[in-house]
Computed example of a mutant assay.
Amino acid sequence: MRNAILRTLAAGALWAAMAGGAQAGLDVCNDTDVVQTVAIGFKGERDWTSEGWWNIDPGDCARVLGGDLTQRYYYYYAESVNENFQGQDYFFCASNEVFSIVGDTSCEQRGYETLSMREIDTGETAREFTLTLVDDGGKPTGGDKIAPKLEDGDNPDNTPGETITSTDTDTSGPGGPGSGEEVNEVVQDTTVVPPEDVPMSVSMEDLKTEIPQGNHGKPFETVALFQGCELEGGREFCSFHAGDWKMRVFYRGPTPERLMYALEELAINMPVLLKGDMVETKGNIAAIVVRGVEPRPGEDEESLLRAYIQGDWIDQGDGRWEMTVLGSEVYYRQDGDFSTHRFLRLAKECDGSNGQGPVLVQINADNNRRTCYRIDRAEGGVLELTDVRRGRSTTYRRIQ
């Protein structure tokens, strides 16, 4: 269910990004019916370079390189939930997180994966170029000429694949200002609620306020999951997850202290009807003032599964990787050291697919890249997840 109330939050930022399309550069547009996740490759100043990721919604475009194009050939990779991308054996390195990687060899040995990309022929004199992805097996529009295959030892000057790095600092890389996918809506999964027997010790009156609607920002109302209260960067706050968003309400702010203290009594994963004002947003994180919270336990089709995946897990095949699931967030460690942090939500299916559930969707808060995992097994201290796009399965064992 799409939440129209929050859809306009990033409208100004989205308009600014689209207005930048009039400048020279390399754009990728999505003319398919599903989100396309895109990476690019090119010859940089020092060596072959790859960058990603951009999430591009159907009908949208993303600026992947800014500034005048001075070379002819670039390379790209595009993932979607319902199509296997067919590369042309132009190999570059990539990572699951936002990346800019120099060098296209020894990817696995350096902790990356190898992507087989397709070629983009921009023509001999183009200063700007738009690649349009269509539903035809991954082949784009915008040119069909094939350059000679790159070999080791090619002259770095004017060879196929060379490009100039962006001169537009506002749009020069994945996850940077003005680039990547703008978050302009919330996809609310209303089936995410905890078990009915979660204890309730909080006074409902303490979760209500007299704050006028819209007094501190854009008013909204949405179903959310309580994430708990924490300290980060010297600031104390409580938070909620709604769709792909994390909403934070801060202590010693306009939200009454009695409501903040009452939130501390709620169980993590408690579903609530959240009413508030949107103060500001950055990426997938929003600062809010809360006008009221209404707990709604006992409505969850996935309550047992959500409760099961909580806690500490270790990769059964590679004991170097561990993950901890806490509420609607997951933390990864490699060899005991923190690696990355993502948001998560349970759903009946992946975006744009049918009948694959239940699935676990992980969201990178920095670039809004979503990765969908089919839950193949969740019992007996085992959690088996399969990356829907890539078909890779990982089996986790619970750490006691």
Rank of each mutant, 00 (worst) to 15 (best):
Q86K: 13
A347H: 14
G311C: 07
M260I: 04
D318Q: 09
R390T: 02
L225H: 02
K218M: 14
T340P: 01
P271L: 02
N184P: 00
A262L: 03
M117V: 01
G161T: 05
G142S: 03
G138M: 05
T8G: 13
D315M: 08
T171R: 15
S328G: 13
H216W: 13
L273R: 10
A62G: 14
T191S: 13
G233F: 01
P195N: 10
C350R: 10
G327K: 11
R252N: 13
I56A: 14
A22E: 11
P199W: 01
G176H: 02
T49Q: 15
V272R: 05
P297T: 10
T37V: 09
R398E: 07
P295H: 12
G355W: 07
V193S: 14
E230S: 14
A224C: 05
S95N: 14
G41C: 10
P219E: 09
P219S: 08
T141C: 04
A347W: 06
T386S: 08
Y308L: 05
V325Y: 07
S116H: 00
N55I: 00
Y251G: 08
Q362G: 05
Q88F: 05
Q188F: 01
S353V: 03
K145M: 04
Q88D: 13
D189P: 08
T159I: 00
E236M: 02
I399P: 12
D60T: 06
V249C: 06
D121R: 10
R342W: 05
V64E: 04
Y373M: 06
G138E: 13
T125G: 05
G111Q: 12
V249K: 01
V35W: 02
L65I: 04
G59H: 09
D152N: 10
V186A: 13
V289N: 07
V35D: 08
N364D: 11
D312E: 06
I363T: 15
L6W: 02
T281S: 14
Q227Y: 00
V198R: 08
V35E: 03
G138I: 01
G137Y: 07
G298L: 00
R248C: 08
K348S: 11
G21F: 13
G214P: 11
G311A: 06
G336A: 07
S100D: 07
C107D: 06
S201F: 10
D47T: 09
C372Y: 03
R118N: 05
M200P: 01
L14A: 11
E236V: 00
I288C: 07
M204R: 15
V192Y: 09
S95F: 01
E185H: 10
V64R: 11
A287F: 05
F338S: 05
R110M: 07
P297W: 10
N184R: 04
G44N: 10
F343I: 02
P194W: 11
V325T: 13
T122E: 03
L69I: 08
I120K: 13
